Simulated assay, not measured.
Amino acid sequence: MIILQDFIEKTGVELSIDCKKALSKYSILHLKKGEYFLKESHLSTKIGFIISGSIIHYYNIEGKQVTRWVSLHGNFVTGFVSFVEKTPSLENLLCIKNVEMIIYNRDYFMNILMKFREIQLAWRKILELNVIGYENRVYQLLTTNAEKRYLNFQKTYPQFVSQVPQKHIASMLGIEPRHLSRIRKKILKKEIK
């Protein structure tokens, strides 16, 4: 629980004792690599905070798995559109490493979100950062070549380079893994010179 409180307080929000008590009413979920947190067409009824492990968010597009994002330890995870709108999920959330997470069901989370101003403030800050990240990634996809996208991604999300398999990074960047390998080799040659 301390890891979640620390994460929220790092957003600049100080938690009241009552809020900490409300946040302490969670369950722990363990998922193994290859298990799903959420499958497409199902409702997202939970929100988790990853203590350890990682989860890819992907779409099935014409029989191909297209990675939208990877949630790493120390972050919230849910099928956001499904969670908010109570509609079937369009994405799959698959564990690519064993995962341990704090879990809240949707109704309880929405209740404490409405009850505690500090949760509202933290939630807003987290959403703002996520929307800024999405907008920047879309901008990069639309306006830059693959090498520039990778360099920007590497600079913005350095933790991904060491923690996320290359095939998922390539998919997020809209390129094939072999193309990403060539880009990485080219960048490495430039760094050596």
Rank of each mutant, 00 (worst) to 15 (best):
L4S: 06
D6C: 06
I8G: 03
I8H: 08
E14V: 09
L15S: 04
L15T: 00
L15C: 04
I17D: 14
D18G: 10
K20G: 14
K21L: 11
A22L: 08
L23G: 02
L23W: 02
Y26D: 04
I28R: 02
E35W: 10
Y36E: 12
H42W: 15
L43A: 09
S44I: 09
T45V: 12
T45S: 14
I47Y: 00
I47L: 06
G48V: 06
I50E: 05
S52D: 13
S54R: 09
I55F: 03
I55G: 06
I56F: 12
I56C: 15
Y58F: 14
N60D: 02
E62D: 15
E62K: 15
G63P: 09
K64E: 09
V66C: 00
W69G: 09
W69N: 13
L72D: 00
G74M: 03
F76D: 05
F80W: 12
F83Q: 01
V84F: 08
E85A: 10
E85Y: 05
K86A: 14
S89T: 01
S89Y: 00
C95Q: 01
C95G: 03
K97R: 08
N98A: 06
N98W: 05
V99A: 06
V99L: 04
V99R: 00
E100V: 11
Y104G: 03
N105H: 10
N105Q: 07
N111Y: 15
L113D: 05
M114P: 07
K115W: 05
K115D: 13
E118F: 03
Q120T: 02
W123N: 15
R124A: 14
K125F: 10
K125I: 07
K125W: 08
L127I: 14
E128G: 12
E128Q: 14
V131S: 11
N136H: 08
V138Y: 13
Q140L: 03
Q140S: 12
L141G: 06
T143K: 10
T144G: 02
N145C: 11
Y150N: 08
Y150S: 01
N152S: 07
Q154C: 05
T156G: 02
P158W: 04
F160Y: 12
F160L: 07
S162M: 05
S162Y: 07
P165G: 03
H168E: 07
A170K: 03
G174V: 04
G174H: 11
I175Y: 04
P177N: 00
H179F: 04
I183W: 00
R184S: 09
K186E: 04
K193Y: 15
